[in-house]
Design a protein around this nucleic acid. Structure first.
Length: 742
DNA sequence: TCAATCCGTATC
DNA sequence: ATACGGATTGAC
């Protein structure tokens, strides 16, 4: 029910009048009288009786017979709300788009074609008009128990509900189960799910060699193909597709080859799943990626078999496409973040592409991340999952290390055939010190590489940093980022003060000395250097300069000589691939005041470098940085797996997420203090802070071991419930896995 | 002794 | 949030 109070975050039972009996099915929107006023809600479940002692009221009305809340979504939403210490209704608001009555009434013409005149829903009959509940049948009125038990209160008592049985310690919401057997074999078995849950998921399968000899990674037409097509280039690729077609719940983390037409690969995976009679949900980060997958799906599936959900759609079109999925007229849904909640019949596969992109983090309470939502759905539904990207996140690595998922990647051999030649320029202190005027001093390798590429008739991509990164500090001598000696949080310089202060715990590090070299002097990091790139462009008068950035993003550029200047995430695809990719943002990226700085740098570099031609076709990548840095090493060798494993190991050592889990509490100082006084935090909770936040607020960070997230989330939600029950005037914002950790 | 008010608690 | 009940206070 649409009440914002944490202590009312549970189902309530109502009687159903005989007139509503038919329409009042699980999943419909309802209006009920609650505490004297009419509120909206969803009907979760019908039941014969209620455990509620007091008197029951009648459902005020069924808003519409459309069953917009799929039971699978309802269960996942409850799990996600629990994981994020949020209210179920807040999650449902994200999951079910606002109703559009006119669209709902229109004959359900499926998106593009769709022939069958759909199920004849006698919806004309079920008008929601007048009905007086009171008179008629008081006694044999059904009662709708809104699932007191069914909603998987997670905690409550030990009586769990059949569907949500999960192995001990392997909370679906948690990114990776603590303990687990072979990937997926322990997953709960949905009611009519396919063959017995057994799956040896992606067994290694050496049949990869038969890949098409096509060579060039460029998006050359043929998408369809022989057997497993391009998936054959990956170890375990064919096995994965076979598992999808057979309806087994294989789960994989996929590192795409440079130049890969990844959208086509995803479409093929979707097609295999749909061929096996199951549904697919695909989530990508932005509209450009969506466009690519949309096209690829159209090519592979044919018309009318999928819908694309885009945040930019108007309410009517958005609801129309949602209904197409909800009414099971299409087996495949692709979209940006909000599509993570798309209902499909018989969920068989969830896919997320480039899960490190911060657009996957939902900005509305309770701030669930698309990867977590999709993996929770996969876990609960016992279906397959694919986490793909050129880069690999710490979370992706964790899925592999815990055995929850298997790796899909190419052998070094295959990789070598696809990768561009990548080289560092070596550290360039002048560049670092004075980026704005550095053009003349750009390492000659950069110039040479660009010039040669243009000469061969290919475009050149220049990746430059965006402005406005948070200033952080690093050792002036060796540039090791300065971290708090107490809690390993990043240090920053507040105002003109000279003493660095920890962004996390607020402690001043007066006597800071660099742990790497002992240096005592600190320097602020670089901000932007766009001008550098513009000057660079002007240095090649023969070639046009095109820019792609926040204001105007280019989808693609032709395969002709041009200098393309782009900020991370806005790089256009080049027809036939870029002859050269120049990465000029090393220091700005690497010294960012974010604990994910290195991972994010890697992701952006790989995403840009993946657009280059293979080395054999002349593709070159130059990164302006010191080749001895681990991040640069990983790029040169195109080894995101090595990098992610190293990164995760380091985070384990420093107790950073996802090796540990964090939550943040933000609010007025008194409110945060009150909250903490009430909360019964698990004993292994570590408190960091408080640290000042915006608008006279402060922020407290809580840290627990990775396996301890569920109890922490529960404790936080309970504390919020106590506070809302006693009408605490000042609110505290709870964020689990806060995205901006600095 | 009754009525107006305050506080705490439940809200199906 | 609101709405209700039971306790409390104050005036007749």
């Amino acid at each position: 029910m649409d009440v914002p109070l944490a202590h009312l975050d549970r189902p309530f039972d109502y009687l159903v009048a005989a007139a509503d009996d038919e329409a009042a099915q699980p999943g419909v929107r309802v209006r009920v009288r609650f505490a004297g006023q009419l509120v909206s809600g969803f009907l979760l479940e019908r039941a014969e009786s209620s455990p509620h002692g007091g008197k029951l009221a009648y459902l005020d009305r069924v808003v519409s017979p459309e069953r917009v809340l799929d039971p699978e979504i309802a269960r996942a939403a409850r799990a996600v709300a629990d994981r994020y210490a949020g209210n179920l209704y807040d999650v449902l608001r994200l999951a079910v788009p606002p109703r559009h009555a006119r669209v709902e009434a229109q004959p359900s013409k499926a998106p593009k074609n769709n022939d069958h005149p759909s199920l004849a829903d006698g919806s004309d009959e079920s008008d929601v008009a007048g009905h007086d509940a009171d008179t008629e049948v008081v006694d044999d009125a059904d009662e709708l128990a809104a699932g007191s038990r069914a909603a998987a209160e997670g905690s409550g008592d030990a009586d769990d509900e059949p569907g949500v049985r999960a192995p001990e310690g392997s909370e679906p919401g948690a990114v990776a189960p603590e303990s687990n057997e072979l990937g997926g074999s322990v997953g709960p078995d949905g009611p009519g799910a396919g063959p017995e849950g057994a799956d040896d998921s992606v067994s290694s399968d050496a049949s990869g060699g038969s890949a098409g000899p096509g060579g060039s990674g460029g998006g050359g037409g043929s998408v369809r193909g022989d057997g497993f097509g391009r998936w054959g280039q990956y170890v375990a690729g064919p096995a994965f597709l076979r598992a999808l077609a057979d309806g087994r719940n294989a789960r994989a983390v996929w590192g795409a080859l440079p130049g890969e037409d990844w959208a086509a690969r995803i479409a093929e995976a979707a097609e295999a799943t749909a061929r096996g009679g199951r549904g697919v949900v695909i989530v990508v980060a932005d509209a450009r990626d969506l466009e690519r997958v949309d096209r690829a799906l159209g090519a592979v599936l044919g018309p009318g078999r999928h819908v694309a959900l885009n945040a930019a759609l108007g309410p009517a079109e958005r609801y129309r496409r949602f209904l197409a999925a909800s009414r099971h007229q299409v087996p495949v849904v692709v979209g940006t973040r909000a599509a993570m909640w798309a209902p499909v019949a018989e969920l068989g596969l969830v896919v997320i592409w480039d899960d490190g992109d911060d657009l996957h983090a939902e900005p509305r309470s309770p701030y669930p991340h698309a990867r977590e939502v999709l993996l929770t759905r996969a876990q609960l539904a016992g279906c397959a999952a694919l986490v793909g990207g050129f880069a690999r996140t710490g979370e992706g690595q964790l899925l592999l290390e815990t055995g929850w998922a298997r790796e899909i990647s190419a052998t070094r051999d295959v990789l070598r055939r696809h990768a561009p030649a990548i080289a560092p320029t070596g550290d360039d202190p002048q560049m670092a010190r004075d980026p704005a005027a550095a053009t003349a001093r750009l390492p000659s390798l950069v110039w040479e590489t660009a010039r040669q590429a243009l000469k061969t008739g290919a475009p050149v991509l220049v990746q430059v940093p965006r402005r406005g990164y948070l200033p952080s500090i690093a050792c002036n001598d060796c540039r090791t980022p300065a971290r708090c000696p107490q809690c390993s949080g990043p240090l920053g310089l507040h105002g003109a003060r000279e003493v660095p202060v920890c962004h996390w715990c607020g402690r001043a590090a007066a006597a800071y000395a660099c742990p790497a070299c002992g240096g005592r002097r600190l320097r602020a990091s670089i901000t932007g250097a766009k001008r550098t790139a513009e000057e660079l462009g002007r240095a090649f008068p023969g070639s046009p300069v095109r820019t792609s950035g926040r204001d105007e993003i280019l989808d693609s550029v032709p395969g002709e000589p041009a200098v393309v200047v782009a900020t991370p995430g806005a790089e256009p695809v080049a027809e036939g691939g870029y002859g050269a990719v120049l990465l000029l943002d090393a220091w700005a990226l690497l010294t960012r005041a974010d604990l994910r700085a290195a991972e994010e740098t890697m992701r952006r570099w790989l995403n840009a470098a993946a657009l280059a031609k293979p080395a054999a076709a002349g593709g070159r990548v130059v990164v302006v940085a010191d080749g001895s840095l681990a991040t640069v090493q990983a790029l040169i060798r195109w080894d995101p797996a090595w990098f992610a494993s190293r990164e995760l190991a380091e985070r384990r050592e420093l107790a950073f997420p996802p090796a540990s889990r964090m939550a943040s509490l933000t609010g007025k100082a008194e409110a945060v203090a009150d909250f903490l006084a009430i909360a019964k935090l698990p004993s292994d909770t570590e408190l960091l802070g408080p640290v000042p936040a915006d608008e006279e607020q402060e922020r407290m960070l809580l840290r627990v071991p990775r396996s301890g997230l569920a109890p922490l989330a529960k404790a936080l939600h309970e504390a919020a419930a106590v506070r809302s029950a006693k009408k605490a005037p000042l609110t505290v914002r709870i964020e689990i896995d806060p995205s901006a950790l600095f």
